[in-house]
């Protein structure tokens, strides 16, 4: 049998994020004695414990789990919004080869964010400047990524707004005037404006009504198909994950408890929690 010769684009090994000092008991391998993700003797909370994952080129990886399971913390650690306690992150890119990107300088982290990453937050307030025009929001990221030619940036920005179906006659308007779905689409346009090879999507369809949700899902799929961008999609909505992701991780109390092909996770779940999650599907 031949092996698959592809290499992961983004690789995370044993990412741990703790709030608190940790003690002799909760620092043991496997962290026995935790109540959920909380150490009763020192009060440390383990938001993420030994999370490992691979994202392959052009792939959408899904992450599901209940509120508080560590999904968003994981995304924020990967996007350098938060520092990790321990763990390694590598990206298969000639510019970044062989480095643990959690350990590099903040200047270099900013470079990676500006050139390699796009991020779409659940709350557009975190990803957009609500009092700048939509096209300026996009320009901000383009400039951060090294763009200097105003004409080129403007036309690229218009093309992106068109991709996400924001009418161009409203591009000079501030996103605070827009509906939630429109804000989310401006955020996606902004996240794509530096041509990132990696895109993080954190609960992007939560709170949107059905038709807008369908439009956003459709847009994400289209981006994957046409641009070949690798994505991590976090959602507590199994239906969204089913539509988007080929592979899925299930998180509980800061740990990955099950991973597999998305349809296998949904139809043949093995972990008790995953079974419960699937039984809860409407």
């Amino acid at each position: 049998m031949q092996r698959f010769e592809e290499r992961p684009l983004l690789k995370v090994e044993n990412l741990t994020k703790q709030y608190g000092p940790g003690c002799g008991e909760c620092s043991q391998p496997g962290r026995p004695g935790l109540i959920k993700n909380y150490c009763p003797s020192c009060g440390t909370v383990y938001a993420c414990s030994d999370v490992s994952l691979d994202v392959y080129p052009g792939e959408i990886l899904g992450i599901v789990g209940e509120s508080g399971s560590g999904k968003s913390t994981l995304m924020q650690c990967l996007y350098f919004d938060q520092d990790v306690t321990s763990g390694t992150l590598t990206i298969d890119d000639p510019e970044l080869a062989g480095e643990n990107l959690f350990d590099v300088s903040s200047q270099r982290k900013r470079y990676i964010r500006n050139h390699k990453y796009g991020m779409v937050y659940q709350n557009p307030v975190k990803g957009l400047r609500m009092d700048f025009s939509s096209i300026s929001n996009i320009a901000e990221k383009q400039i951060a990524a090294g763009g200097r030619h105003v004409g080129q940036m403007q036309s690229a920005g218009e093309r992106l707004l068109d991709v996400v179906s924001i009418p161009l006659f409203r591009m000079k308007e501030e996103p605070r005037n827009f509906s939630g779905g429109m804000q989310q689409r401006v955020q996606i346009a902004k996240a794509l404006s530096n041509d990132p090879p990696i895109l993080f999507l954190d609960e992007v369809t939560t709170g949107l009504d059905l038709s807008v949700q369908a439009a956003v899902i459709d847009l994400i799929k289209q981006i994957q198909r046409d641009l070949g961008i690798s994505m991590i999609v976090v959602s507590h909505d199994l239906a969204v994950i089913r539509m988007l992701a080929d592979r899925t991780l299930v998180m509980l109390n800061g740990r990955v408890i099950e991973s597999g092909l998305t349809d296998q996770i949904l139809e043949d779940p093995n972990h008790a929690y995953t079974q419960q999650l699937v039984y809860s599907l409407l």
């Binding site: 597999g260 092909l261 349809d263 296998q264 139809e267 043949d268 093995n270």
Partner: peptide, 8 residues
């Protein structure tokens, strides 16, 4: 479903 690997 096992051939298709929907079942593990």
């Amino acid at each position: 479903k096992s051939i298709y690997r929907t079942y593990l």
